[in-house]
Nucleic acid binder design. Sequence first.
DNA 1: GTTCACTCCTTTCATCATTCAAGTAAATCG
DNA 2: CGATTTACTTGAATGATGAAAGGAGTGAAC
Lengths: 138, 138
Amino acid sequence: MDATDRRIIEALQQNSRMTMKELGELVHLTGQATATRVKKLEDLGIIEGYTIRINEERIGLPIHAMITIYTTSTFHDPYLLFLKEHRQYVRHNYKVSGDGCYLLECRFPTNQELNAFLDGLSKYVNYKLSLVIDQNTQ
Amino acid sequence: MDATDRRIIEALQQNSRMTMKELGELVHLTGQATATRVKKLEDLGIIEGYTIRINEERIGLPIHAMITIYTTSTFHDPYLLFLKEHRQYVRHNYKVSGDGCYLLECRFPTNQELNAFLDGLSKYVNYKLSLVIDQNTQ
DNA sequence: GTTCACTCCTTTCATCATTCAAGTAAATCG
DNA sequence: CGATTTACTTGAATGATGAAAGGAGTGAAC
């Protein structure tokens, strides 16, 4: 991991579909040398994969919820199974120290579906709901 | 947005560097027809960009913090300016309803840097810190 | 029923990127 | 000093892309 690798990662974060030749021009290497470095970053597990940024509002998922989960029981499996069954809504489930046991990030198409999800959720855990009003990603 | 577009989006979420020809085989179209559809999804703003999934632990950012921000003042600009000055740590700054005004997601290399960040932060807002212990992304 | 316009797709071909093998140069190590 | 490793370049073959031309299906107007 040198300065060139860091520039490669930065460039791929901006646009992961750029050709190895273009990327090579940015870091002053040939396309082949660049491809070898990228392959190494993949093998080291630094680059975990290639994906797209999606506008979830535009595909009908306008509701963005952050749910702090409080479990009274020490047995979390029913909650985790519930998440698996509703994985279509779940973006992240962070196990956290501090306030609550988990911080659950979800997306919903409607308030009705959010409501139904929360009804199901309340069978397993207590929760506190926050709705995202505006998103400022770096 | 039909079923084919949804399959294209799913496939690109898994691997955004796949060729249009490969993607076309998945959705039973030629590479050219697939490329046209992808271009349309970009123009509609549904696909916002192409990026990489990074293992931040492996690039020296093991500390993952979720910070709930409480502002007493109605004037948020000093806080937002502080974030801009420390944007290297900031991943997301969600404006939320519910508990707090913002939910701030950050990454730090060391507890020392987290501590310095929190010292700076406390000049502008009150906060509650949660540290991510484990991450379960869908 | 016919025509026109439109959308969505395929085929073909020229251009460009990628990949493999071979070779060079510098650094490391016994 | 010679052998090995690492990181890179070059050149040729393969494969992907993008532009142009054309075909098939749909719906509207007459």
